[in-house]
């Protein structure tokens, strides 16, 4: 598989604040790679460095296996922060400008306007657009010239529920066509629904990265009780997938690093000489899990 982006030990500091620290990542072709983290975790800083808006203090990165160069940015479509366009120019003129910069030919403009549902408004000045339309124009501009990679920074931020669904469907559709996508979001739900891979960022440090199904899907915990609680507590820590536990009144709550089936768990405990009197699987909400991921690493 071709590596689209590789980041080596990137660091950036703003005065006292360490925006990102020693960040290394690799994005392969065809992935929908999510950068997940709360506000202020360094997502936008990372993307800004990758797009040459900000200089990093240390570290390096490569696009398409080549050291960063402005020509390479023409193969990247980006939506960064708020949509930035010339308010006094029409949607179509704004896109013509982007096409001229990207040297991608203006014949693609109608296609991206249609994809984003803006073809009716293409001759309207940008400043008259609603926020949702502005965001859609930003995505249209990112899609111009069929880029190899799409960078989306909080693409659904500030949109109404209908707009969010539309944008997400659009992203999935583009991904199906084989475009690699790098998406930053503070919404776990969004990353879980859209992405194939994820890196979790907190205070500029990467906590995890991997497949979404591996990093985020382990959302289960078990309530366990046995006749010999002390032995249960001792044995459960030795389980290969053990992550953490809490002792409650009549049972212990156990969290695992990966998916564990209740039958297999019971079987394993039995083989270790523990007989359970209570076993109950508890589904955690994704948000809860995300917060745990962050808390466990502070």
């Amino acid at each position: 598989m071709k590596t689209i982006l590789s980041i080596q030990r990137l660091s950036k500091r703003y005065g006292k604040i360490q925006a990102i620290k020693d960040l290394s990542l690799k994005v392969e072709q065809g992935q929908i790679f999510g950068i997940l983290g709360p506000n202020g975790s360094g997502k936008t800083t990372t993307l800004s460095i990758l797009l040459d808006l900000i200089k990093s203090d240390q570290g390096s990165f490569e696009w398409f296996g080549e050291p960063a160069h402005y020509e390479l940015r023409k193969r990247i479509g980006s939506v960064i922060e708020s949509p930035n366009f010339y308010p006094y120019l029409s949607a179509a003129t704004n896109l013509r400008l982007v096409a001229a910069i990207k040297e991608s030919g203006a014949d693609d403009i109608d296609r991206v306007l249609q994809l984003t549902g803006l073809e009716q408004r293409k001759d309207t000045k940008f400043k008259t657009f609603s926020f949702g339309m502005k965001q859609r124009l930003a995505i249209a501009s990112a899609l111009l010239g069929k880029p190899d990679v799409l960078i989306l920074d909080e693409p659904t931020n500030g949109l109404d529920p209908q707009g969010i669904v539309q944008i997400r469907e659009l992203i999935m559709m583009i991904a199906r066509e084989g475009t690699t996508i790098l998406l930053a979001s503070h919404l776990l739900d969004e990353v879980q629904k859209i992405c194939t891979h994820v890196a979790v960022l907190s205070k500029g440090i990467k906590l995890f990265d991997g497949k979404v199904s591996e990093v985020l899907a382990v959302s289960d915990s078990f309530e366990l009780a046995g006749d010999d609680m002390e032995k249960l507590l001792k044995v459960i820590r030795e389980h290969p997938a053990y992550q953490s536990h809490q002792v409650n009144n009549s049972f212990i709550q156990v969290y695992f690093k990966e998916k564990v089936l209740p039958g297999a768990l019971n079987n394993w405990l039995f083989s270790q000489g523990v007989i359970l009197s209570h076993l109950s699987e508890r589904k955690r909400s994704l948000e809860q899990h995300f917060l745990e991921l962050l808390q466990n690493n502070q």
């Binding site: 808006l53 402005y70 020509e71 960064i80 930035n84 366009f85 308010p87 982007v98 501009s141």
Partner: peptide, 14 residues
């Protein structure tokens, strides 16, 4: 004012 210089650079203008 309109942050379009950022957008120009992001789009591939040095």
């Amino acid at each position: 004012t309109h942050k379009t210089i950022r957008q120009n650079v992001v789009n591939g203008l040095s």
